[in-house]
Simulated scan of single mutants.
Amino acid sequence: MATPTDPRERRPRTVFRRLDGILLLDKPQGLSSNQALQRVRHLFRAEKGGHTGSLDPLATGLLPVCFGEATKIAGGLLGARKAYETVARLGITTDTDDAEGQALRERPVPVLTIDAIDAALRRLTGRIRQRPPIYSALKRGGEPLYAKARRGETIAVEEREVEVHAFDLLSAADLLDGGEPLLRLNVECGSGTYVRSLVRDLGELLGCGAHVAELRRLWVDPFRDPRMWTLDGLEQLREHAGERVLDACLLPIEAGMASWPEVRVNAVQAQRLGRGQGLRGPYPPRGRQVAILDEQGRGLGLGEVDAEGGLRPVRLFRWAAVAGAAEARADAPRCP
């Protein structure tokens, strides 16, 4: 008698390929960022992939995914400015500071006015000190804090300084109409800021506690007006239109380099950089990391301009040296 097999065992093994580009994924609720990354990496059959900043399983919205050589700029995108829309549920605090956690304390919600809410929001705007959630991907001793928290370990998380560019009330209709004590909020913030912590601290300023009920990331610099793709949409494209059409959903690496100052180099200079050699310059801006492009606007990688204006390579794409050498040979004078 045949033994039933796990359906997953019958799936064909993914044959990965070299693929470079950036996918603006609309992450669905219920998946971790890494789970979403692995889904699209297998869907595109990309050998190498990484995402540029985690979203909680509760959260939806923009998750830039870098394939291939684009992973070399992913670290720079991690520190980019981001925007969110969130719904705060007043009156209940949880151990994760969002709706997926266990309730810790419930308190009555006082009578609140728009002016009182706005005043509390202003106190959480600008350069502020923030304590990250215990359940977070921050690492201590090489292990994420959430792993320690799940084991019941006592964790003291230190405050750190973050930048909140905007924290605004979009709607308090439910609360003011006597319905659910919900606030819909807009957040624009810099790297390392936790929206869950902002909502938790807002609840304390309002005297009743709060947690994140909904969270959606709207944009990440330099993708201010993103055309996002859902997992379902990508899977349908793959099934009905094929891999070439699926690949057309990717942005070129250059689209992710727009946040860095730009430096253009000719073929001979590109060849020198590709060999790991620096260029004297002077190149602006001094003391900054820059995007290096060739004369046609193709990205070659990231570099750094020193205090004297010299340019040195930091992380170049695999084609930088080859392209530079080929162009230099093509431009070389030939014997008649």
Rank of each mutant, 00 (worst) to 15 (best):
R151I: 01
A156L: 12
V162Q: 09
E163V: 08
E163K: 12
E163I: 06
V164L: 11
V164W: 14
F167Y: 13
F167R: 11
D168V: 00
A172H: 15
D174A: 14
D177M: 06
G178L: 03
G179N: 06
P181Q: 01
L182S: 08
L183R: 12
R184K: 14
L185A: 06
S191P: 03
G192A: 11
G192D: 07
T193G: 11
Y194H: 13
S197L: 03
R200Q: 08
R200T: 07
R200I: 04
G203P: 02
E204R: 13
L206A: 07
G207P: 01
H211N: 10
E214H: 12
E214Q: 13
L218C: 03
W219S: 12
P222E: 12
D225R: 14
P226W: 01
P226I: 06
L231G: 03
L231E: 07
L231K: 11
L231T: 03
D232L: 09
E235N: 10
E239F: 05
H240R: 14
G242F: 10
E243F: 08
I253T: 08
A255C: 06
S259W: 03
W260Y: 15
E262H: 15
V265T: 04
N266P: 07
N266I: 01
A267T: 04
A267Q: 12
Q271S: 12
R275L: 12
